[in-house]
């Protein structure tokens, strides 16, 4: 503790002396070191030397280098922007082409569908017509056959009636009537029956 105190006191004394005699260092030069003109020549000389050297190196080497790389970067970015715009334009063109191709394909598909439908319709109509004529022919043939059969049946009935009449008359009067008489009688009966029916 005593040692500290001694040291402290000594230090205090030293500081006190220093502060009291504040301009001690520059005193022989007269106050502030800054105001000692004997140092001016040297300071100006070395300042101009170092400043000049720095200016020379900066303007010749470092500033062109820094400016160059900044300029280059700026150009590169501008180029990249241009290129990006170019790519965008190309993409838009490609998209337009794609849209157009799509629309064309759609239109072609629609026209093909319409054509196919028309040809199928025509075919169907043709087939329908064909089958109709065939059916009509068949119907006509069948009707003719029916009429023929009916005629034959009528003839057969008339024959049968004549023969039956001939046989009945033969049995009744034992006389064979002539063909004409029977026919006449039968046609009379038929017309009578018709008249009665009417």
């Amino acid at each position: 503790m005593r040692a500290y105190l001694t040291a402290g006191a000594s230090a205090l004394a030293l500081i006190g002396m220093a502060i009291a005699a504040e301009p001690v260092p520059g005193e022989e030069a007269g106050g502030l070191p800054q105001l000692d003109p004997s140092t001016y020549a040297s300071q100006i000389f070395w300042l101009l030397l170092t400043f000049g050297a720095l200016y020379f190196v900066m303007s010749r080497i470092f500033l062109p280098r820094l400016g160059g790389v900044i300029e280059e970067r700026r150009n590169r970015i501008a180029d990249d922007y241009d290129q990006a715009a170019d790519f965008k334009r190309q993409a838009e063109e490609a998209e337009a082409g794609y849209e157009k191709a799509l629309a064309d394909a759609r239109a072609r598909a629609a026209s093909i569908a319409a054509e196919t439908k028309a040809s199928i319709d025509a075919e169907i109509a043709e087939m329908e017509e064909e089958s109709e004529t065939r059916l009509e022919g068949e119907i006509a043939a069948a009707e003719a056959r029916i009429a023929e059969t009916a005629e034959k049946a009528r003839d057969a009935v008339a024959e049968a009636a004549r023969e039956t009449t001939q046989a009945i008359v033969e049995a009744l009067i034992d006389e064979t009537p002539s063909q004409e008489t029977v026919n006449e009688a039968l046609s009379n009966v038929r017309s009578e029956a018709r008249a009665r029916a009417a």
């Binding site: 500081i15 005699a21 504040e22 001690v24 260092p25 520059g26 800054q34 040297s42 300071q43």
Partner: peptide, 16 residues
């Protein structure tokens, strides 16, 4: 030594 260091006047640092 510290005291000697700081005892230098505040203007001594500007001495040429």
């Amino acid at each position: 030594s510290l005291a000697r260091g700081v005892a230098a006047g505040p203007m001594e640092q500007f001495e040429i």
